[in-house]
């Protein structure tokens, strides 16, 4: 009854399992380490404009998160639906923060 040998396939599913080469993963890792070093330098040495350090740190962190999601987590090779739903989730998170912050900023 239950089929364990092959997985179901529906329209919209990725055609084949995408195998990411070892070297490519290592390249991604090097990039992530560089971004980490950058964010530490920006903060500790004050290389960037001080007032923007929070924003710089968050932009770098977001870039790292996107890279991890896209390549390490294979998001780029999955059904596009997941990317869209991830977008909705992030949108809601931003709304939660923005609306709440709006209350505090205008108080």
């Amino acid at each position: 009854m239950a089929n364990k040998n092959t997985s179901r396939h529906l329209p919209g599913d990725p055609e084949v399992h995408h195998i990411i080469p070892y070297k490519f993963h290592i390249g991604i890792w090097v990039g992530l380490i560089i971004l980490t070093v950058m964010t530490v330098l920006v903060s500790v040495m004050g290389i960037s404009l001080v007032a923007f350090s929070v924003i710089t740190a968050l932009i770098i962190a977001s870039a790292k998160a996107v890279v991890v999601a896209n390549y390490f987590m294979h998001l780029k090779y999955e059904n596009k639906l997941i990317t869209w739903l991830m977008g909705v989730t992030m949108l809601l998170f931003v709304v939660f923060i923005a609306f709440t912050a709006f209350d505090y900023i205008t108080r």
Partner: peptide, 10 residues
Amino acid sequence: HNRDDEASKF
């Protein structure tokens, strides 16, 4: 009850 890898990952 069928195997469905896409469902698991989703």
